[in-house]
């Protein structure tokens, strides 16, 4: 474990807890894409299948439970909680995210490190995580505005991915045979997707005006 990875995990945990807290507190999910949240729930469900078979550490297991619990809770709130569901912007959140699931599944069947059930699903979860933010970014552009908590959510998500890249660089130089091309490439693609969002987020912060 290194400081970049710990900071990355904490930032990631805060991003989901901030969003869950927002939805729970103000009983609204305006501006949030349920499709992105469903994709994240699938990412965690397919990546943490080994939670019962392979024990890495208390920390690892605890964080997996936090991510699984928060992502499924957010989807539940947005889909089945009456008050919250009423604020869901169905007309604008129209990204066909099942195509993302399908293409990531096909890609995982083609490109993976080992052809085993767990390994292919793990690779699938990496590909899906890289594109999971797309419905949210599209919704953001459509609604043309962003309340500060959704902005913070995306900002923290991007930050977590950026810190993970520093973690991989650190591990590459400190651990002899630490080479995971698939992880690195998907992580880089995901971070690049956030790049333009960061640009506009920074501009709105610098000029102290609403992000649009």
């Amino acid at each position: 474990m290194n400081i970049f990875r710990l900071a990355g995990d904490m930032t990631h945990m805060f991003s989901v807890l901030v969003l869950l807290l927002k939805i729970h507190t103000i009983k609204s999910c305006a501006g949030v894409s349920v499709k992105t949240q469903e994709l994240y729930a699938i990412v965690f469900a397919t990546r943490y299948l080994d939670i019962f078979t392979s024990f890495v550490s208390i920390y690892n297991t605890f964080m997996k439970l936090v991510f699984l619990g928060s992502s499924f809770s957010i989807v539940w709130y947005m889909r089945y909680h009456k008050a919250v569901h009423r604020t869901y912007d169905r007309e604008q959140d129209t990204f066909r995210h099942w195509f993302l699931v399908l293409s990531c599944l096909l890609l995982a069947l083609l490109i993976h490190e080992k052809f085993t059930f767990l390994e292919v699903l793990w690779t699938f979860s990496l590909y899906l995580e890289a594109v999971a933010i797309l419905p949210q970014l599209v919704l953001l552009q459509r609604t043309r505005n962003i309340d500060n908590l959704t902005g913070q959510y995306i900002f923290l998500l991007g930050g977590y991915r950026g810190l993970y890249i520093l973690n991989w660089i650190y591990r590459y130089f400190t651990e002899p045979h630490f080479v995971h091309w698939i992880t690195w490439i998907t992580g880089l693609v995901q971070t690049l997707l956030y790049a333009d969002f960061f640009y506009y987020y920074f501009l709105s912060w610098k000029n102290n005006k609403k992000l649009n």
Binding site: M1, D50, S54, V56, S57, N60, W122
Partner: peptide, 10 residues
């Protein structure tokens, strides 16, 4: 800390 699947990261 590496699990046998080699996936020790979240």
């Amino acid at each position: 800390e590496d699990a046998e699947t080699g996936h020790d990261e979240l």
